[in-house]
Amino acid sequence: MARAYVGLGANLGDREETLRLAVELLAAAEGVTVVGVSSLRETDPVGYLDQPRFLNGAVAVETELEAGALLEALLRIERELGRTREGPRFGPRTVDLDLLLFDAVAVDEPGLTVPHPRLHERRFALEPLAELDPALVVPGRGTVSELLAQLD
């Protein structure tokens, strides 16, 4: 059984309800058990700035799935909740589910890089992870607490 962490984000529609539904759908996915959910926080957009603020959080799961299969489950949930890939990169979205960490291992496959390549520089992702587990290690980078301290 692997422990994985999923970033949650939304900035269109009823953001809180969408993220609540995303967690429910993740918990209902075969081979996935939700073991922790951070609080949600409002954050400024990154990359593409001309868009509404985001609501962000994170979920800890235990899973029997491999990293690629978990990513596919996340993409299915995004589609089910109305996510499209149209518009600018980093643009507005109804929901965004990112596989941030997977069982303290590094994965580099076509379409999947874990830890998430920009995790160490994104406060909106690190803060909810620190809430779930401040000693959580980002492989090759340090603990989420250390990474947050470096952003100050």
Score class of each variant (00 low, 15 high):
residue 63 T to V: 04
residue 116 H to G: 08
residue 54 F to N: 06
residue 30 E to P: 03
residue 124 F to H: 08
residue 42 E to W: 04
residue 68 G to R: 15
residue 125 A to T: 01
residue 106 A to N: 01
residue 30 E to D: 15
residue 98 D to L: 05
residue 22 A to V: 11
residue 88 P to F: 12
residue 32 V to H: 02
residue 45 P to M: 11
residue 24 E to K: 14
residue 106 A to G: 09
residue 91 G to S: 10
residue 123 R to Q: 04
residue 60 A to G: 04
residue 29 A to E: 15
residue 96 D to W: 01
residue 45 P to T: 12
residue 81 L to N: 10
residue 118 R to H: 14
residue 116 H to V: 13
residue 119 L to W: 08
residue 25 L to G: 01
residue 78 E to A: 08
residue 49 L to V: 13
residue 114 V to T: 12
residue 21 L to P: 00
residue 29 A to N: 08
residue 50 D to V: 12
residue 95 V to D: 09
residue 40 L to P: 00
residue 74 L to G: 11
residue 121 E to Y: 01
residue 48 Y to R: 04
residue 30 E to L: 02
residue 82 G to V: 13
residue 96 D to Q: 03
residue 36 G to R: 06
residue 85 R to P: 01
residue 42 E to C: 10
residue 126 L to H: 06
residue 73 A to S: 15
residue 24 E to F: 07
residue 73 A to K: 14
residue 101 L to K: 09
residue 54 F to A: 04
residue 85 R to E: 09
residue 100 L to Y: 08
residue 102 F to N: 12
residue 62 E to A: 08
residue 109 E to G: 04
residue 65 L to V: 06
residue 126 L to R: 01
residue 44 D to G: 02
residue 49 L to D: 13
residue 97 L to A: 12
residue 95 V to P: 10
residue 37 V to S: 03
residue 84 T to H: 15
residue 77 I to Y: 06
residue 70 L to R: 09
residue 38 S to V: 00
residue 114 V to H: 09
residue 116 H to M: 02
residue 62 E to I: 03
residue 30 E to G: 14
residue 30 E to C: 00
